[in-house]
Design a protein around this nucleic acid. Structure first.
Length: 522
RNA sequence: GCGGGUGUAGCUCAGUGGUAGAGCGUCACGUUGCCAACGUGAAUGUCGUGAGUUCGAAUCUCAUCACCCGCUCCA
């Protein structure tokens, strides 16, 4: 069977990575200096591909969004915010407080813990001032730490003669503050070994920098870890300047930065990446409806761009997976060849009124600073937010792995079956041989397509054998090649070669641009 | 961050202490009559990087960087 898909195979992933480099889709950043972990560059073909993806998203979501549920109308507008913002933004969003947690590692069993979630638990006999033993547990608070300490504590108690005991948990945060050199007295909550925990270390995943020439704590700033906060911070500006009315959405495409501990899997987990985000603002009582609308819209969008296989898997998050402020979230996941498990391409989250409320509190000192008034019902409410947040680089990678096809019966076994709308090169024009006036006709046809389809990336090539030129276009994923041959000179027809099955038909040379537009549908 | 593996031409890899190699790709010229054709020729390497051992290191040692796999992490 032609177009045989290969999946769930790491060898395939390696072939894809090799093809990406060979054909100029993706290069490692700073490769000539030995590279740099978690950063990637797009080459000429990859740049066209990613641009087509971002354009498709912007056109389909912002300029020409689908009709809403029950054909309800809604507006979509765009913003393009700065990457560095006032650091208070990240206090309001929780990124500064929440993600700079000190961690400790166990040198013995290699487990890692958040310092504030480990409790040191000395065990006491009633009436005694010194503990007879101690242990550690992982827990959210002191009360559950006591419960968590019972099984281990009972065993320890038996060892020490048995009898009732009293567990008095101390959070590691507090313990280390009181005993800065107290590491040796602590045991690992996982393997129970004594004195194996490292000193606490900060793991802030935000990139830090300084605004202004003086490097001082007072002017620390961060590269944004998500584009969403720029949208929330401009919510009122957009309301005041554009006449949008609830329900409406604000969209943004832009770079974001996360200092991942361990970047992996080609471009999938990068430290610098591009997001395509929508924050959709609606009435609280309609939030569920809009959540479902966006979830379904986003799934259909991926399918419309060629991710039709069963590798695309939406997954509704379970209760304990959800952030505390979130009512619902669907991860739209894709099964990449590098993993047995599906990986997130996009999260569609029902965020309630959390973000606007937080920014209200932090910027204006009141929860409802960004409340709006419904003109018909006169109700006043802080809008609820549905957030479809997609990874542009992740979808680019999914597009590449989905398109990658292998058919050993073809002269060119590897070919990229891109959706025509996303294909980096839309068509190529070839003289069958570089003589008898064929190159001149090729140039004429090439110029004709350029004039009639000025947005298409095209190629013209007269060098080497025709088979080699077809093969190169197969690896670039070019849907159609037009070839000028001897018959063209007699009856003005050219052959059209189809990338997916290598079949050929003849069409009049005047109609190549029309043929392309109809076939590509772009 | 931990453990294991890998790193030699654009790609895939051979080379285990003694002159830097192959296939494919790329380029040029010739040829061409629809699928990586053929012929001739060419370019391309601080052998990931830096130290050390040695008369001599791609090869041995150490460090470091990057990538892959498994943990860990993933707002």
């Amino acid at each position: 069977m032609a177009g045989n898909k290969v999946s769930g195979d790491k060898a395939v992933m390696e072939k894809i990575v090799a093809l990406c480099k060979r054909r100029g889709f993706i290069f490692q950043s700073s490769e000539i200096y030995g590279g740099i972990g978690g950063f990637w560059d797009y080459g000429p073909l990859g740049t066209e591909l990613k641009r087509n993806i971002k354009d498709a998203w912007w056109n389909d979501m912002v300029r020409n969004p689908p009709p809403g549920p029950d054909d309800r109308e809604f507006q979509m507008v765009g913003v393009d915010c700065s990457i560095i913002m006032n650091p208070k933004v990240w206090e309001a969003s929780g990124h500064v407080g929440g993600f700079s947690d000190p961690m400790v590692d166990c040198k013995s069993c290699k487990a890692r813990f958040r310092v504030d979630q480990v409790f040191h638990v000395p065990l006491y006999r009633s009436g005694q001032d010194e503990p007879f033993a101690q242990l550690s547990v992982e827990s959210d608070d002191a009360q559950s730490a006591i419960e968590a300490a019972q099984p281990k504590g009972t065993k320890l108690s038996k060892k020490h003669g048995g009898g009732d005991f009293d567990a008095r948990p101390v959070c590691l945060t507090d313990y280390l503050e009181a005993n800065p050199t107290g590491q040796a007295n602590l045991s690992c909550p996982s393997c129970n070994e004594l004195g194996t925990l490292t000193e606490p270390r900060e793991f802030n995943l935000m990139f830090q920098t300084y605004v202004g020439a003086v490097q001082d704590d007072a002017n620390i700033a961060y590269l944004r870890p998500e584009t969403a906060q720029g949208i929330f911070a401009n919510f009122k500006n957009v309301m005041d300047s554009t006449r949008v009315k609830i329900p409406f959405g604000i969209a943004q495409i832009g770079k974001a930065f996360r200092n991942e501990i361990n970047p992996r899997n080609f471009t999938f987990r990068s430290r610098e990446f591009e997001q395509m985000e929508i924050e959709f603002f609606c009435r609280p009582d309609e939030a569920k409806m809009w959540y479902e609308f966006w979830r379904d819209t986003r799934i259909k969008w991926y399918e419309s761009l060629g991710i039709k296989s069963d590798k695309l898997r939406p997954r509704e998050q379970e209760g304990d997976e959800l952030a505390h402020y979130s009512d619902a979230c669907t991860d739209i996941e894709y099964l990449f060849p590098f993993s047995e498990e599906t990986q997130e391409l996009e999260g569609v989250a029902h965020r309630g009124c959390y973000d606007l409320t937080q920014h209200g509190i932090h910027s204006k000192g009141k929860e409802n600073a960004f409340a709006v008034i419904d003109n018909e019902t006169k109700e006043r409410f802080v809008p609820h937010v549905i957030e479809p947040s997609a990874g542009a680089d992740r979808f680019t990678l999914a597009t590449i792995t989905e398109a990658y096809s292998y058919d050993e019966n073809r002269a060119s076994p590897e070919f990229m079956k891109f959706h025509p709308r996303l294909a980096p090169i839309k068509a190529a024009v070839f003289p069958l041989v570089a003589k008898d006036g064929m190159p001149e006709v090729a140039t004429e046809i090439y110029n004709q397509i350029r004039a009639e389809c000025p947005t298409y990336a095209l190629q013209i090539d007269a060098k080497q054998s025709i088979g080699k030129r077809y093969a190169r276009m197969d690896e670039a994923g070019t849907p159609y090649c037009f070839t000028i041959d001897g018959q063209t000179l007699e009856d003005n027809t050219v052959t059209v070669r189809d990338r997916d099955d290598a079949s050929q038909i003849r069409i009049p040379k005047e109609s190549v641009a029309k043929f392309l537009r109809e076939k590509l549908g772009v």
